[in-house]
Structure formats: C-alpha cells, structure tokens
Design a protein around this nucleic acid. Structure first.
Length: 490
RNA sequence: GCCCCCAUCGUCUAGCGGCCCAGGACAUCACCCUUUCAAGGUGGAGAUCGCGGGUUCGAAUCCCGCUGGGGGUACCA
C-alpha cells in the first residue's frame, strides 16, 4: 500500500488539512505501507514563501513521519510538482495524440463572456468547446504561430462515469454534465487534474485519500486514468472538518494554523488524538488513544461520511488529559519554554531572571499539573512561585466567617509554630497546622485560606502545604511576616 | 441555476433489522471527596434517531420522496 498527502503551499494548513493527512498516515502505518509527501506547487501565483517549511514543521511537530518526499527524496521523485513539468507536458501530448485532449486558444475574456451569457440564460457555466471543433490544420497552424493555448480534456459527451468511492460506493456522473477541464495552463504548468493523476500513477499510489470537496472532479480523474490506459487507485473521499458555523473549515472563518496550537501550549499527542476522532471512531467507549493504539486500530471501515464540526472545548479536554499523563520531568521540559518566553508573549514577568532553575521549576510545575489545560497556562498559574513581592488586597487574608483579630491571632500562632518547626516538608507542616486549627476551634478552611493568601497572594493555588514546601522555608516565612504587617496596618 | 455528497443528544460519535422507549465522550447541572481551585467519583438533564411514505412479524438501521445542511461549478488546489 502506498499513500500520499499532497498539500499545496498556498498558505498554512489547519486542523482540517492535517486531519486528512493523519488518515493517510494512519492507513499507511497500519498496513505497514509507505506514506509519502508530495508538494503540489503548480499554482505559482498563489504559492506562499515559507509555506512548504511550515507544512513540514507541522508534520514533524505531530510526529507524522514520511518515507518519501521533501528533505529525504525517494525512488519516485522529485516530489515537488514544479520540478516535474517535462513529465506533465509529455503526458499532455500523449492525451492530445490519443484524441483525449486538445489545445484551446480561447482568451480569458471570451471565457468570461461565454460564462456570463450562459448564466444569463440560466444554463450551467461551462466551456462551450469552441476550440474542440477546430480542424487539425488550423490547430497546427495556430500552435506553430505561437498563439497561446491551454490543453483541455475532451470529455465524452455521452454516457456516464462511475467513481468508486471506498466510503460511499459508486457515484454516478452523467458525462453530459462534465466540463472540458484545463489540464495544462498557458504557462505550461499543469493543473491539479493532470498533475495529480500523473503523479499518483507514477508514484504507484494505491489509495487516494482526500477531502470530499474533490468528489465533483473525481469523474474527470477517472476518465483521465482511462485515457492514459492506467488503472485508477482506490478513491477515499473523507468528510470535511467543519468550523463552528457548520461550514467547511477555512482560513477566513476562524481556522487557525496548526502550529499555532503548539504555540498556545497544546500537546501534539492531544491534537493527534482529537483529530483522529474527527470523522473516525474506534468503538463505543474508547476516546483516549495513543499514537500506537491509533495505528493499531485504524481502518477505513470506521471512517464516517458526515462532516465533523471542530469543537475547541473537546480538544482542550484532551490536552488536559495528556498533560496529566506526563511525568513532572517531561512536563517541565515542555513547559519551561513557555515560562521563559518574554512577559508580553505570555511568559513569566520579565523581572524573573532566566534561565529558570530546572529542578525548582519541575517541582512547581508538578504541583500545577492537574490544573493545567495548556502549557501556556503555567506562567499565570505559577507566577507567585518565581516572583519576590506579592501584590494582593489584604482583605483577602480574612476568610469567610472570620474577622481581623481572629485572623491576626491565627496567623501569629501559625507563624510562631512554623518558625519553630525543624523539617520544612508538607508531611511535617500539615499536622502541626491542623492541631492549631483544632486548638483555635476553627474550621480548616478558615485558617488555611488566610495562610494561602499570605503565602501565594491569591485565593486559588495548589494544595497549601505542598506549595509551602516547594516555596521553601525562608520565602514562606517572609511572606507570612509581611501578611501580618499588612493585616495589622489595615 | 446545474451537478454531487451528507443527515442519531448543543458537539464528537456507537449502532450495520429484533440485544435500543438508543450507548459512550466533551460541554452543562447537582451531589460526594476536600484547606482553595482542579482532578476524581456518583447521579441528572439532554436525540419522538430531520420529515413523510413504503418494505418487513419487526426499522435509527433497507427503499423512495421531501426538507435541511454542505461541497463543486476557475488557466486554485
């Protein structure tokens, strides 16, 4: 089995594009076949510099490796269509010779005019085949004269073409409804229709997996394979990924470049897992599936036919799941860059000196692991572990059902007790403070809230005693002392 | 307009004629756990399986029509 993903470098790829690529990859890996990448860069006007690099970076980030293609080459290269122009030209000539294609000299202006007239008459806009009727002498003369032309496919005018789709069965198209599509542009670059068919055949592709938007042009491709006397591959038109509005995900309807998920602190394994479930399912119970499980269980039979809406909330949930599965060391490795980036890019305050202490950061991040939804959350959540001064409203020190005097008393007693404590670990601090709570006749929350605010400057934090342990004796006691001052002044 | 695809809780989906007055997950609500927030646990609400006809002893599952949504209709892919 040989499968390919063939992106066009005309912009960034979003979740939808990579989801289709993922299906390609999973199918190939499941079957221990070959997965290759081919760059369809034939639209030179729309080609965006850097787009190829970005696409490749996305594959690398997701961990989708390819066996042939950019960077590594392969036995059926080149894998950039702009480097295969001689091949397309030869095939185009072969089609012309065989009577399956013809030169068309119509100008863009005339084409537009024809279309406008057809539309005015309520007819489907299609090429009127004027040049298909030109006799061979005139055609040869005009070509020899250097008149610009495109090459069009001469679609049969009668009968029907069947597209056999692996997911949907046979789809029937009346040939009378088909258009004489352009195969070779006047600049001698091929269109998708020619290049795709030629390359898929030459590269021995067995399964063409592409988005359902290609169904309407599939009969043309089937016809082209036949005209070249080639056996067509298995066609698999997978459902689209839809935006929140129910329309096909697109750049201008909120779609985001895949790599932006990386920059927003998403884990590639989470994105991968989420994408796999967009149009494919395993069974009625499992959703958290590792890369290996995905490969082992993927099959075309379980790919659906209906478009799947992109749900950011579900992706976020997956991300949390995968973050919680990380070891503290691994999580720290991945989170450090997010913490260390500049403050205006979402990192810790610039007053915190970089690089961070690796061991300390690992302990901090370990405490926040089950609260983090993205790696980017870490900076805001852990800030108080890294800064010196805490800014907070002293009123927060007074817990519900408490007053200033009792809070002051509780914190003073805690302070005294903590200063006397020898081993600064949660397991030692906690029982002492709990004894104090009982002695004062308070509820745990009444004292601990005050301590939490004193030590972290906020009402929400990881478990208090672990937090104090990581923060360390000195820093914790300093902050407690400062809280006592603030409260006394209040 | 014409051609094509699709249709189960808000969302992703299970279901391929009887096990389904429809199961799971996300989101949501409540409760439990609990030093806060999470995480976790339990439970609830949420889909007359888009609608109408058939076929069948029996249909979410098969067929037809309708409606709705989407895609295509470029010398873009």
């Amino acid at each position: 089995m040989r499968v390919r993903f063939a992106p066009s470098p005309t912009g960034f790829q979003h979740i939808g594009g990579y989801r289709t690529a993922l299906f390609d990859w999973l199918l190939a890996r499941h079957a221990r076949g070959t997965f290759l990448l081919r760059i369809e860069d034939t639209d030179i006007a729309r080609t965006v510099p850097g787009a190829v690099e970005a696409i490749i970076e996305g594959f690398q980030w997701l961990g989708l490796d390819w066996d042939e293609g950019p960077l590594i080459g392969g036995p059926f290269g080149p894998y950039f269509q702009t480097q295969r122009r001689d091949i397309y030209r030869a095939m185009s000539n072969q089609l012309i010779t065989g009577g399956h294609a013809y030169q068309c000299f119509c100008t863009a202006d005339r084409l537009k005019q024809v279309r406008d007239e057809q539309q005015a008459r309520g007819e489907p806009p299609r090429y009127d085949r004027l040049c298909r009727r030109i006799n061979s002498e005139e055609r040869a003369r005009r070509v020899a004269d250097g008149e610009p032309y495109v090459v069009r496919f001469a679609v049969p005018t009668e009968g029907a073409t069947l597209v056999d789709d692996a997911l949907r069965g046979a789809i029937r198209f009346e040939n009378a409804n088909l258009d004489d599509a352009v195969l070779l542009k006047s600049n001698a670059y091929p269109t998708y229709h020619l290049a795709n068919v030629v390359d898929d055949h030459l590269m021995r592709i067995t399964h063409v997996i592409r988005a359902e938007e290609w169904i309407p042009s599939a009969p043309l491709h089937v016809l082209t394979y036949a005209a070249l006397d080639w056996a067509p591959p298995v066609f698999v038109h997978v459902p689209d990924v839809l935006g929140p509005d129910g329309r096909k995900l697109s750049k201008r309807h909120g779609a985001v470049p895949l790599l932006e998920y990386r920059d927003r602190g998403y884990l590639p394994e989470a994105v991968l897992n989420y994408m796999a479930l967009l149009g494919w399912s395993f069974d009625d119970k499992a959703d958290v599936l590792s890369r290996d499980q995905l490969i082992a269980s993927f099959s075309l039979e379980r790919v659906g036919t209906a478009g799947a809406r992109y749900d950011p909330g579900r992706l976020l949930w997956f991300n949390g799941v995968y973050i919680r599965q990380l070891s503290p060391a691994d999580l720290a490795d991945r989170t450090l860059p997010f913490l260390e980036r500049p403050q205006d890019q979402g990192g810790l305050p610039d007053s915190v000196s970089r690089p961070l202490d690796r061991a300390y950061a690992e302990r901090v991040v370990g405490l926040e692991r089950e609260r983090m939804k993205t790696l980017a959350d870490a900076a805001e959540m852990t800030e108080f572990f890294f800064t010196e001064a805490l800014e907070y409203d002293p009123a927060l020190l007074i817990a519900k059902g408490m007053d200033r005097e009792r809070t002051l008393d509780g914190l003073r007693r805690a302070d005294k007790l903590l200063r006397a404590s020898r081993r600064w670990v949660a397991g030692n601090i906690e029982p002492k403070l709990r004894e104090l709570v009982a002695e004062l006749g308070l509820k745990p929350v009444q004292l601990f809230t005050s301590l939490r605010v004193a030590v972290t400057g906020r009402t929400v934090s990881p478990p208090l005693f672990d937090t104090m342990e990581v923060l360390g004796r000195q820093r914790s006691l300093n902050r407690l002392a400062r809280a006592l001052v603030l409260l006394a002044e209040k």
